[in-house]
Amino acid sequence: MSLAELQHLTADRRGKPRLRSEERKEQRKLRRVSERDNKAAAIFLLPWLIGLAGLTVGPMLVSLYLAFTDYNLLQDANFTGFDNIVKMINDERLHQSLGVTFAYVLIGVPLQLVVALVLAMLLDRGMRGLSFYRSALYLPSLLGGSVAIAVLWRVIFGDDGLFNGLLAFFGVTGQNWISNPDTALSTIILLHIWQFGSPMVIFLAGLRQIPRQYYEAASIDGASAWRQFRSVTLPLLSPIVFFNLVLGIINAFQSFTQAFIVSGGTGGPADSTLFYTLYLYQEGFGSFLMGYASSLAWLLLVIIGAFTAVNFWAAKYWVFYDD
């Protein structure tokens, strides 16, 4: 959005009609001043440039090199060609972690957005107490990423946990949802969905931008509530849904804390909660196989990049821009 804005600004400047001579003189003076900005910009951007070189671009290049080595922190790195890639192809725990992470991302992210959108729609129609509901429903997003809540989740879905207590209230016998490989991941997906508050707030802001006249016109034409949702709300909100989807997927691929805490750092039971980043952490900082961990990190970047690219490609078919 901001890039487009920037282009818009520069295009404006180019397209300006000829100015009267004094204005041009003034303009030239300003431009002369602004040409001197190079030096000022270097000073203002110095911290960022150091960070970019020393903490981002430099480490990325090093990481790319390490990805093709057997570096393990204790010994010097040896270039091993495609050994790490071959290892990845045959690494069953990696495949398991990919499966777990895909399931988490592809189930958790859309479900969370659906819940967020439904609640935002319910809240939008000028409800009394809207700001209270919004704040209360936002709270889980604020707290949900913390270690404390992950610890709580572990207890809630444990043997004698709150969840089983509530089930017993309805006469259902529960189980230990955390130590069962079939259900452990579901509890973490639920934890993700529970944090629907922040996309909800973004949706609410988006819904407020939709002109009311559109709905009035639609209802005069006899459109039902569902039809109004399909034909007015959804198209006009689609850029925001898209934005939430892209960011949600990027973030979900990097989820770490929840799986780490709920599984006690193991990714268990039976690797059923072995998130990708958790596996990366185990390899890099548990076994100190930092060369291999770098390969894993780059694979993650490629996967996230691919998902984002597909998202942008698919956007053509369903994201509606009103201009």
Binding site: P59, M60, L66, A293, A297, I304
Partner: peptide, 8 residues
Amino acid sequence: PIHVVIVP
């Protein structure tokens, strides 16, 4: 992702 740069 932080993971790409965390090792270096």
